[in-house]
Nucleic acid binder design. Structure first.
Lengths: 210, 210
DNA sequence: CTCCAATTGGAATGACCGCTACGGTAAGCT
DNA sequence: AGCTTACCGTAGCGGTCATTCCAATTGGAG
């Protein structure tokens, strides 16, 4: 994020090396978790010495956080929400869920690493975990927004609970695919999920608005 | 052989020490994951030297696997499935889901540790991970059994998908509570979950049986 | 060309890692 | 009593950890 930018051209492999380091780290961290990600292993995988890693990143925590941030950006770029509103509401949220499922299949690193970090609760919380939880909270808010716009009769508490259910279940479906491999049809599961949430919202009692 | 040779009386702190070690390990592994669980940290927490840990357990992998196994037993003991519950099918599976949610609240270590291990995919798979995945597969089969008995008209594929959705979403809801803390009402979420799955099964088309 | 800063290379740091060797101690058994 | 088994305690092994130091390199700017 911090760019010198003062007309200092990329003169050596700087940026490419940075990407190589992040590539190696995302692979190792996805295999072995936070503690299992050793600088030596990253160094071996990206064929750069440890000193280069420490030139590009302050310390291991900073490296992991950078990985989370970059994989989130990658994932965001692969989510294409259809902004034009065609079809019934159910068709629309089903399409949205399908797109999210597809993007998670294409760029799973963000959620995979994030959930791994989130499940740990070490005394000194890694910065990557904080970043993940913030992003996740935003996702929750956006889902709640969609639900509220589609079902304005629902009260706040119902919207909150449905959004929580929608996001949490989606995580679970993703984890299921991470565990059971590519044979799992994540798009189909997400579309089913969208329909269930939609049905639930339809059947929920509309109470007085706050 | 008139010499029973059965359990030699517990003459030292053997069994108690074993439990102390497991208690310490479940705490540390829940905080820091597989690699982050160091023998020295366990040793410090249970106030027993490393050599005692290695007397009771073959190696670190064996220790983690033992923790998974014990926490599974603890969890199983806290699940009380009402086998002949009265009421409608929906009421019955809702009660079942509520019981599972309550047991997961009371004894979360099994699923928490298991999911942490499951998300990692290190080259040499820890035995604890294998154990967890086996138990999880059994859980999936049991859920499929319940669904099939309640909705005999559904074809195999539909039952499989619903069971997958039911288990995976449940994991996600559990993770949500682990992340967001005790304020999350897991029982309510599980009861909602049960109802959604029930509704989905009701609405699913009944195809020809295989 | 020289100078300078961005990178890399390699080696070293002390702390910690999993694990073991081995002696001590106390409670069974005979 | 003496032998055996179960467990605890100390000390340490070889290795890896995150991190740092500092000397090379490299390429753009003057």
């Amino acid at each position: 994020m911090t760019r010198p930018q003062t007309t200092r051209k990329k003169r050596a492999n700087g940026m490419e090396s940075r990407q190589r380091i992040l590539d190696a780290t995302v692979e190792i961290a996805g295999e072995r978790g936070y503690e299992g990600t050793s600088i030596a292993a990253v160094s071996a995988k990206c064929a750069l010495p440890a000193s280069s890693i420490y030139w590009h990143f302050k310390d291991k925590d900073d490296l992991i956080a950078a990985v989370i941030e970059r994989s989130f950006d990658t994932w965001l770029a692969s989510v294409t929400l259809p902004d034009h509103e065609t079809g019934t509401p159910l068709e629309r949220i089903t399409a949205m869920a399908g797109n999210v499922a597809k993007s998670l299949t294409d760029a799973p690193d963000f959620l995979r690493l994030g959930l791994m970090l989130a499940l740990e609760r070490r005394p000194a919380e890694p910065r990557g975990r904080t970043v993940f939880l913030q992003v996740r909270a935003i996702a929750h808010a956006k889902v709640a927004e969609v639900i509220e716009s589609l079902f304005p009769a629902l009260d706040e508490e119902a919207v909150r609970m449905l959004a929580t259910y929608a996001v949490a279940s989606a995580d679970g479906l993703f984890v299921h695919r991470e565990i059971n491999g590519d044979a799992v049809d994540l798009v189909a599961l997400f579309e089913l999920h969208a329909q269930l949430v939609y049905d639930a919202a339809t059947r929920m009692p509309a109470r007085s608005k706050a």
